[in-house]
Nucleic acid binder design. Sequence first.
DNA 1: CTGTGTGCAAACACTTTGCAGGTGT
DNA 2: ACACCTGCAAAGTGTTTGCACACAG
Lengths: 136, 136
Amino acid sequence: MTAEEILKEHKLKKTVCRKCIIDKLMQSDDTALTENEIKDAFLDLFDRVTFYRSLKTLEEAKVIHRIVLNNTTVKYALSSQLVLSKIHPHFHCIYCDKVTCLDSSLLDRSLNLPSGYQVESVQILLEGICPDCQKK
Amino acid sequence: MTAEEILKEHKLKKTVCRKCIIDKLMQSDDTALTENEIKDAFLDLFDRVTFYRSLKTLEEAKVIHRIVLNNTTVKYALSSQLVLSKIHPHFHCIYCDKVTCLDSSLLDRSLNLPSGYQVESVQILLEGICPDCQKK
DNA sequence: CTGTGTGCAAACACTTTGCAGGTGT
DNA sequence: ACACCTGCAAAGTGTTTGCACACAG
């Protein structure tokens, strides 16, 4: 699926900035990127404000989703298949700082919720060492 | 356990600012507070910078821990009993915006981790409606 | 007394808003 | 043609840093 198709499907106008964001995130696979990592790929082709607004638009349309790390840095990743589940687990490597989206089936069966709470979404952030960094 | 005892136990100097922070968090029970909520309780008795530094010191000493919400607001809560577990689940009410620390036994048995990843900590943020807001 | 904490001023990074002009459909 | 997107300027918010003075142990 191309960036243009994704935009069309969500009834968003095809603008260069939006396409660049989606393309960049598609290339990065399941690794989430910061606003700067996305922007730097285009050498200040767009204003910073335009990026923020495009990211916001894409997020509201659920094309992408944001991941907030403990140090309050924000990363973005494509939503694609994950939309179906309430549960969004991510892994943050404390060595290489990479954030990857994990399969939501990770925890589906096991939530042992306290009574009285109505849960709409569950965000899980695993922190540790990723397979690549363990080899080093 | 009093604020002074906690500071002594962690080998930190007893300063008014630190004591106020700990007192305020003890009063709020298991509800996490923002820097502003803590600070406002003392009517600008201290400089903002002093608060940041005190919070940082207390966090590094693991007296308190920070919780980062999706909108990147930061809240703080006492660590107390939770220190033992790698897992820190919190509940964020989307109506009253209250954040509470939950029992870490919530998920202990059930983590079905992908192979190759070495996990050091697990942060879980449940979002939904708290018991109080459901009654309304 | 010594090291550490505090207050003030300033800098910094991130994000939002308003407005005029440009672009997609 | 119209609605919406973009760029620029500016402001708002949260956080950090440097320095001189004050305070706890």
